[in-house]
Design a binder for these strands. Structure first.
Length: 370
DNA sequence: AAGATCGTCAACCGCGCGTAA
DNA sequence: ATTACGCGCGGTTGACGATCT
């Protein structure tokens, strides 16, 4: 029995979304919340398939996402995580809550891979080839590699941080019945955010403005009225600012998010609901106060509305042994620490961690990349 | 100025997984 | 235990703008 098409292909519109369609979609989600995508086209009258609606929402209309202008810090994280996880963009995106997997994937494919290749050719055969090889690792293998990584990581972390071994018990087995890594909620939620890191960047929130920036105006306050928001959260109206629907057909003009759009949220989700990376990446990449608040609020609304937590939980790299688990924060800190280590001191960081058997190759690490 | 080529990225496609019936 | 369905993920495509010749 063949798989039925996800939707009736006849009469389904494809191609760039129009502002009108965006409005219809956003309005619907405002009323009903995301999910049940199958019902979206019928209820909205959109001639789009359910997947298309979900994608549009997830990648562009969803509040809390930031577009364009990847910071150095984000680049580093992506490179780290790509080396660690391979092309598991959703997992990588879970560490950068403001970025979508699609965005990260595109950025990798168009910028980072190219940069790495360049460096690879500059470094010779032993250069970054290993990184690219990473992505070619068959799915079944990366978990084993990851285990190896974690062992090495354990040692590195113990050395570097002088942490008690008990807290760093490395997993001996993964749930590997599927390609998904199992996780434990407690690991995810309990991490305490580190103090705000030294700001390494700068760029303002580069939300894509577009003719549909207007959508945010048209729909101003839509989140406020959402039944879901009313019941579960005190905050939400910031989201409209992020309807940065930049279809190419409309515009690619970038602008900073207007503070009026993003202000007004007062409460936030539990701070410890944020993964450190979430916290870190936001705070690190946004410096202006208004942007900062927008970031937090956006994240808040994202979490509240769109199961980002769930997604993150699903994807985040949580490893468990029989008795103990690696506190997720340690891994996060690990990555985080590396990124703020002054130049020249990076040798103890993640980049030193081999990604598997080809240790030698991997020693030409990405730190040189920057 | 015009055509060719390159780079970017929004969107599509197919597949796998989880789950409810 | 099986099947059908919905969702999410990763790879790929194609449109469009920018740059080069």
């Amino acid at each position: 029995m063949g798989r039925p098409p996800c939707c009736d292909k006849t009469g389904v519109k494809k191609g760039p979304w129009t502002p009108e369609e965006d409005i219809a979609l956003v309005s619907y989600i405002q009323e009903h919340g995301p999910g049940n995508w199958r019902a979206v086209p019928t209820h909205t009258g959109l001639l789009r398939c359910s997947k298309s609606c979900r994608l549009r929402w997830t990648n562009y209309l969803r509040p809390g996402i930031r577009r364009g202008n990847f910071t150095d810090h984000e680049e580093k994280m992506i490179i780290h995580l790509q080396a660690l996880l391979g092309n598991r963009w959703a997992a990588i995106a879970s560490y950068l809550p403001q970025r979508t997997d699609n965005d990260i994937k595109n950025y990798w494919n168009t910028h980072l891979r190219k940069k790495l290749r360049k460096l690879e050719s500059g470094l010779g055969n032993d250069g970054f080839s290993s990184l690219d090889q990473q992505s070619a690792i068959p799915k079944g293998q990366w978990e084993r590699r990851l285990q190896t990584d974690m062992r090495t990581a354990k040692k590195a972390l113990s050395d570097a941080l002088s942490l008690d071994d008990k807290s760093l018990t490395i997993p001996t087995s993964f749930s590997s019945s599927s390609s998904q890594i199992s996780y434990s909620d407690s690991y995810f939620v309990k991490a305490n955010p580190p103090p705000p890191p030294a700001q390494t960047t700068t760029s303002s929130t580069a939300t894509y403005a577009s003719s549909t920036e207007n959508i945010s105006r048209l729909l101003q306050g839509w989140m406020k009225n959402s039944p879901k928001s009313a019941s579960t959260a005190t905050t939400t109206n910031s989201s409209s600012s992020n309807i940065g629907v930049g279809t190419k057909t409309t515009t690619k003009t970038e602008s900073t998010t207007s503070s009026s759009d993003v202000e007004g949220s007062t409460s936030k989700p539990e701070a410890n609901d944020q993964s450190i990376f979430g916290f870190d990446s936001s705070s690190n990449s946004i410096t202006t106060p208004q942007s900062m608040s927008s970031t937090v609020d956006d994240q808040a609304s994202t979490d509240l509305y769109f199961q980002d937590d769930e997604k993150r939980k699903d994807n985040q790299l949580i490893m468990k042994s029989e008795n103990e688990a690696v506190p997720f924060s340690v891994i996060e800190n690990w990555l985080f620490d590396e990124s703020i280590v002054p130049q020249g001191q990076e040798e103890g960081g993640l980049f030193q961690i081999s990604l598997g058997c080809d240790d030698e190759d991997d020693h030409n690490n990405t730190s040189e990349f920057f």
